[in-house]
Design a protein around this nucleic acid. Structure first.
Lengths: 363, 363
DNA sequence: CTGTTAGCGCTTTCAG
DNA sequence: CTGAAAGCGCTAACAG
């Protein structure tokens, strides 16, 4: 009899609604539960469960029957119940660590810009895995350790952290975690990182292809910031080290402005024909200094940044730069960390950046 | 006997771990459940439940006892089980609607900037209510209607939407929702909005206090965008309408550049001494046009934007602007929409913006 | 003010 | 390959 009903299509929804709750009382309004679906499909609840979790263990015709019936009556598995039964939390934690840094080279938290896309990416990627995103902001090691007993997540996705002390704290949580973004140098933990060496190399090549021969490279915090030294190393893998004038000083807009002033003379003397800058923010400062000195970009000097920051839309021309593909980094990280919940493996994925062409380089 | 054990403090954790699962089998690793807590505290599970949900219904000494015991053994209520039993989802949906607009005046999605802070605010505010944030991006009315059967949230927080058609679609979901940001004009639905009229007024007053007397107001899409017309109305509530030259054209950086060119002459002729701009993005364009024409800001003309966009750090001076306090708007919205899950009321909250002083106005 | 009882919807043994 | 039974941790009646 049930089978006959099924063949009538969507109108059974009413039938089902009427007969539902026969045994178990009222369930969520307008929803049918697994028991009802099982009855309608003429299988057990267990089989339905398997259809959703391990379909390979179920006869394929039954899989199809269950799926079809579910679609007809609008059945959607209840994730909450599943999570409860499985004793998980169903959450992946997006962990941001805001600790006092020894040096602070950003006047503004320019990461905010990328954050939007990262968060959207995370939300989306979680969904496809039936996980939900939870957020936590740690301001100390203690905050991180506190996670151990909070039971709010099954795994952690760490936003741009490469500090050993933090990594050690994370290890004590006995939970899979993955460190994303500028985390190339970390070992023995899962990472999903950008390839700063490769990016630096791309920047140099782009200038080289534009015919530049006398580069200046403006950077800062070379010792403190592995990402910066990698970008420089990549740059130097293209232009011979002895031919590159490296300025290691302050960065950010103000730092860039200072650095820019220092190279005005060498540009005017044609001792420098192009500039690689460690990031776009600093490049903005450099550009202001050069423009103020009457230097024409790119006629007199080409310049390339790094990060693909949107702030550069406030410049009078489009800045050539390097894009990290953060979306890809974070989407991959989600996939990997969720995998590691089951298999406890350690993953290591490095995403290659790409050039974003711009009018600041004369081709 | 249980009481005696309790008085020994944290060391019982071990005792409890050893005796746990006596009846119910293994629970989440390292966690004790409500039943065990109830036993330890010498009360019923129900009482514990009340302590967490309706403490006013429990004798205060018992509340304290339960809380203390819970703290000692590190008990944390399991939200998943609670949500399951309550037949809710435990989620508030953050709904972004990305529909094809008839007009597109932003070259870049500059909202991304604010998004980071908004999302952090939302996450944080949810937590204090034991709700979790879920995200959904709708690209059509159908996407919105689909939410009806998805059963993924208990309420919806809508990101910056004022379109009637969308609001109607939301109403069919039979779920509390709140429209945030530029939603002043909506009636009969919950809103948490910014006061654009007030902001426009503040901008005008700021210029007036700086001694400006001959304002130009640069705006666009006045008819299509209620927020823009409100900003203008606010501006005109300070400077008499007949004294203000209003330019209603294209906006964004390019639009601003065009508008800027048009007013060069009047500035040079001292027919205009200040400029109010509908937003910062447009102001950037205006500024570039004026600088290119050799006009000194703020010596020859003062200028104020709106939005407090960070892109303006790439300008050679700090732009005066108006801040909306988006954090406050969204935090309030969370509180309100969660309230309305229980009481089904309609809320209407309007947050007043404030001036962000800058060097672009000569005081 | 407090406790007892009966599940929420799902998954996981354990037997076929 | 399939199903029955036993709960996951919590809360909402209901009855004191």
């Amino acid at each position: 009899m049930i089978c006959i009903i099924i063949n009538h299509g969507t109108s059974y929804k009413k039938v089902i609604m009427a007969k539902k709750n026969s045994k178990t009382g009222v369930n969520k309004p307008g929803k049918i539960n697994r028991k009802q679906l099982a009855e309608l499909a003429g299988v057990s609840e267990t089989t339905v469960s398997r259809v959703y979790n391990n379909p390979e263990l179920v006869a394929s015709d039954k899989v199809e029957l269950v799926r079809k019936t579910a679609a007809e009556v609008g059945y959607v598995p209840d994730k909450t119940a599943s999570v409860l039964r499985r004793k998980g939390t169903g959450n992946i934690l997006f962990l941001e660590i805001k600790m006092q840094k020894k040096y602070d080279w950003t006047q503004i938290s320019y990461y905010n810009w990328f954050y939007a896309d990262i968060v959207r990416t995370l939300f989306k990627q979680m969904e496809s895995h039936m996980y939900q995103l939870r957020h936590y902001q740690a301001e100390s090691i203690a905050d991180i350790l506190a996670l151990k007993n909070m039971n709010i997540c099954d795994a952690i996705l760490v936003f741009n952290v490469e500090d050993k002390e933090i990594v050690e704290a994370l290890k004590t949580l006995e939970m899979p975690f993955i460190c994303c973004h500028h985390t190339e140098k970390l070992n023995s933990v899962s990472i999903c990182a950008t390839d700063n060496f490769y990016g630096g190399m791309l920047a140099a090549r782009y200038l080289q292809q534009a015919g530049c021969k006398k580069p200046v490279y403006i950077t800062g915090f070379l010792k403190e910031t592995f990402a910066h030294s990698q970008r420089l190393n990549g740059f130097l893998s293209v232009f011979a080290k002895k031919n590159v004038a490296v300025l290691d000083g302050k960065i950010g807009i103000d730092g860039g402005f200072e650095a820019g002033k220092k190279i005005i003379a060498s540009i005017k003397n044609a001792e420098a024909d192009c500039i690689g800058v460690v990031n776009d923010l600093t490049a903005i400062g450099v550009i202001h200094a050069l423009i103020a000195a009457g230097i024409k970009i790119p006629e007199q000097v080409s310049i390339i940044g790094y990060d693909n920051l949107p702030f550069t839309i406030a410049l009078p021309f489009k800045l050539a730069t390097v894009d990290l593909f953060l979306n890809r980094i974070y989407a991959t990280a989600v996939d990997l960390v969720i995998k590691s919940i089951r298999n406890e493996k350690i993953y290591r994925e490095v995403i290659k950046p790409a050039i974003v062409p711009g009018e600041s380089v004369r081709l």
